[in-house]
Amino acid sequence: MSADTIQDARRQIEICNACRYCEGYCAVFPAMTRQKAFADGDITQLANLCHNCRGCYYACQYTEPHEFALNLPKALAEVRQDSWQDFAWPPQFGKAFHTSGVAITVLIVLCFSLLFALSRTVMPVGGEGFYATLSHSMMVAIFMPAFLLPLGSLAISLRRYWQHVNGGRLTMTAVKAAFVDAGRMKNLSGGHGEGCNFEDEDRFTKLRKIGHQLTMWGFLLCFAATSSGTILHYGFDIKAPYSLISLPKLFGVTGGIMLTLGTLKLAWLKTNADRNLGDTRVWGGEMAFVLLLCAVAVTGLGLYAATGSTLVPALLATHLGTVLAFFLLMPFSKMAHGFYRLTALIADKTR
């Protein structure tokens, strides 16, 4: 992490800690008031507790043109982004995505979509539904390592983070409390429960919280659809395609709709918010990832709608390409923020 970035964040945090006007806004400020001096690990922990709602900036009397020139959301966003890059494993991938996230995302999606499209011409397939286009064994051979390896990478990254911030000894009480706060999106509710003013100084709304909740629960439902399909396939020998009233379809269609609406809402809010209150270096990469997640949902819904038509091979190749890109980029892209913030909440609860 840049020493200048850490030092500027420390300067601003010390001023905020003396003022304490924003004490009830989010988890950052109560955590800040527990100490008077801040090591590098403390700054990193506070940065990852921050959800960039920007309420503290709009309430602050020390922003420009005041000589203190505070911009705490931006300072913490830069520290947070640097921490994700530095703790990422392998570190080279983290640095590459940090500087060229959009190009990497587009290139991976196009390459894998083309690869899946060409695979039909060189490999025999058999089965019903999507398996008539790409065999079940081939899907498992490709996606199992593509799912497990990024999770392993994230585990290494989070362990590095935990050691850096001196997270302490894990307790089930702390873990449970952190999951409750994360599930409720407590830190996106604002200090008075009115929501945040992420996109407008004078307008408090819960739109960002709703967008995050739709995205999170939509993603979890899509994951539940895949998991239930796996259980049906291997546990009960019930193979795809599944009917609309089956668990995979009920979870998948509902989750796909929620994920689409959530990511579109987040993308719209991002275009309306002040870029200078976040890390401007990675605005494009963050937007690319939100749209990639949206593309996963849209192509999945489109694939289901096109079942039985001649569009299935092309749509399946595109959908699998976006899904594979999503998994492979998970430890290095904006998706990592969910894991880091949950870990930061757990570390906060242990204290």
Rank of each mutant, 00 (worst) to 15 (best):
C60L: 00
D279R: 00
A75Y: 02
T254D: 01
A31H: 03
V312K: 05
G129T: 01
C196L: 06
T310P: 11
R341C: 13
G193I: 04
P150K: 03
K349D: 01
K349S: 03
A132F: 04
A31M: 11
R80F: 09
Y234W: 11
A146Q: 08
Q85N: 10
T121P: 14
Q85A: 14
P145F: 01
T322G: 05
A103L: 10
G252N: 01
V125W: 08
E201W: 10
P145R: 02
Q85R: 07
A306Q: 02
G338I: 12
S333M: 03
D86K: 06
L207R: 11
L170T: 01
L149V: 14
V298I: 12
G129W: 00
Y161L: 08
W89T: 05
G252A: 01
L324Y: 06
G195N: 02
V125I: 10
A224R: 03
V296S: 12
A177S: 13
V165K: 03
L170R: 05
G195R: 02
F29Q: 10
F289C: 09
K265L: 13
G183W: 06
R351Y: 01
L292T: 04
I108Y: 10
L303S: 02
G167C: 05
R120C: 01
W162E: 05
M330W: 09
M172A: 10
I142H: 01
F179Y: 11
A336I: 14
K206C: 15
M258P: 09
Y25F: 10
F143H: 06
D4Q: 13
A39R: 06
C50I: 03
R20W: 10
Q81S: 14
D348A: 13
M172K: 12
V175N: 03
E201M: 07
V140Y: 09
L46K: 03
A96D: 06
V79I: 00
I108W: 11
A59D: 07
C222H: 04
C294F: 13
Y21G: 09
K249N: 12
T260H: 07
N166F: 07
H233E: 09
A178C: 05
I231K: 07
W283K: 08
A69P: 04
R10A: 00
L303F: 01
C60P: 01
T121D: 15
H51N: 11
C19A: 10
R34W: 06
K95C: 03
F116T: 03
A177N: 11
F327T: 05
K176E: 14
R281G: 05
L154Q: 11
E128V: 12
V323K: 04
M1A: 07
F339E: 02
D4H: 08
N166Q: 04
L207E: 13
L134E: 05
T343S: 09
A273E: 07
Y58L: 06
P90D: 00
H66S: 08
T99G: 09
L264K: 15
A306L: 01
A297F: 03
S227H: 13
Y57C: 03
T44V: 15
A273L: 07
F97M: 10
V253M: 04
A96T: 11
E286G: 08
A117Y: 13
L70P: 12
F179I: 12
T322L: 10
T215I: 06
Y21N: 08
Q7L: 04
R341H: 12
R203Q: 13
F236D: 06
D237M: 09
T105D: 02
